[in-house]
Design a binder for these strands. Structure first.
Lengths: 197, 197
DNA sequence: CTCTTTATTGACACGGTGTAAAGTTGACAT
DNA sequence: ATGTCAACTTTACACCGTGTCAATAAAGAG
């Protein structure tokens, strides 16, 4: 739909995405993006006021392209808390790999650009909500590890599933996506579920 | 010792440290550091060839000032693997808070500066070795969770104890240092020790 | 045919890093 | 006293990437 309405904007976004995914994030300049989208650097500023907003728009574009909602549905519909947790870890954990390039660029901008920071924090809060929901489900089934508050458990799961953690395991240490998700699922269980099981 | 040999160099390093600890890392420019050290911006370049090397030197300076070796000794001398793990998590986890400012600045430079990247990676590998040693101790006492290889367990512990994870919990979520260390110790146990306990 | 939108080219300001050159200051040796 | 050396200062500038501005071109819609 957005692709029909405004083809160049779309071309820009997909070029941005592609560049961020392949090059190292910091190396991608506005001029690189313009070149890849086959417009002048200045034309970029006709569509996006600055780099930060372009990155934010790219994230939204990716969400749309990957149909995030559909991915998260199984987690919400899970019968019991345990499978809900596993589904959630699988869904989000698997998604990180696909947005990593853009995520990385946005994270790097946090330090210098308030808007980028806000956008990133907002998205991460959404992830935290997902974690909170999974923890809540565990708590209502009485499965939650007793020495943690729900808050703490949420923070812990959220941190385990953070992008930097994913980066460390999958990029630095070369874990495969399957291995990552598998280990994270068992780890999350261990981490959160009280030993009464 | 370094303080006796070269007072201005020392003043620069301590100014850098102080600024990075108080201001947000990215906001600290070379000129700010110069001003804080009461020398001209150019004199900075008489002591350090560029920003990256200044940051790296600051990290070393901090290590010396905080006597890292002494902090890590209890972990290495621990009687059993379990207390070794707890000591290690406590020592490193507690240390992060004191170097966070500099660490943050160095991490931010990774994207643009190869030298900064190398320096940071080197330090993180040292941390990973600490994790590996703790895991190894667990393994030789037969305590290691059986569904993980030693490699995987090391990576997992290392990621749990990473600076970004610390940041998310202690800065973003406002955990106190004690709470962080306490939760991390019990979490690490849960994460790594097989249920034969 | 003209208005509007989208794009182009070229130029420039700003901020931060790093370089270069010439001059100042103080300590110390002879 | 003089000369020398090192640390430091001031001033200036090059480079890069972001973002702004103005003048102009092309193309479709009314």
């Amino acid at each position: 739909m957005s692709s029909i309405k405004n083809p160049t904007r779309d071309r820009i976004l997909s070029a941005t995405w592609q560049l961020l995914e392949t090059e190292g994030a910091a190396a991608v300049r506005m001029s690189d993006i313009a070149k890849a989208a086959k417009i002048s650097r200045q034309a970029l500023y006709l569509h996006f006021p600055n780099r930060a907003e372009l990155l934010v728009a790219t994230v939204r574009y990716l969400d749309e392209a990957h149909d995030v909602e559909a991915r998260l549905a199984p987690s919400r519909q899970a019968a019991d808390a345990r499978t809900r947790l596993a589904e959630w870890v699988g869904a989000w954990g698997g998604y990180i790999g696909e947005i990593y390039g853009v995520a990385r660029a946005l994270m790097a901008m946090r330090d210098t650009d308030a808007e980028a920071r806000a956008a990133w924090d907002d998205r991460m809060q959404a992830v935290r909500h997902g974690c909170a929901a999974a923890v809540r489900a565990l708590a209502t089934e009485g499965l939650l590890r007793p020495d943690l508050t729900e808050e703490e458990a949420t923070d812990l799961l959220w941190t385990l599933l953070s992008v930097p953690s994913w980066e460390q395991l999958c990029i630095t240490q070369g874990w495969s996506a399957e291995r990552y998700v598998g280990v994270m699922q068992s780890t999350a269980e261990r981490l959160l579920i009280g030993h009464a099981q």
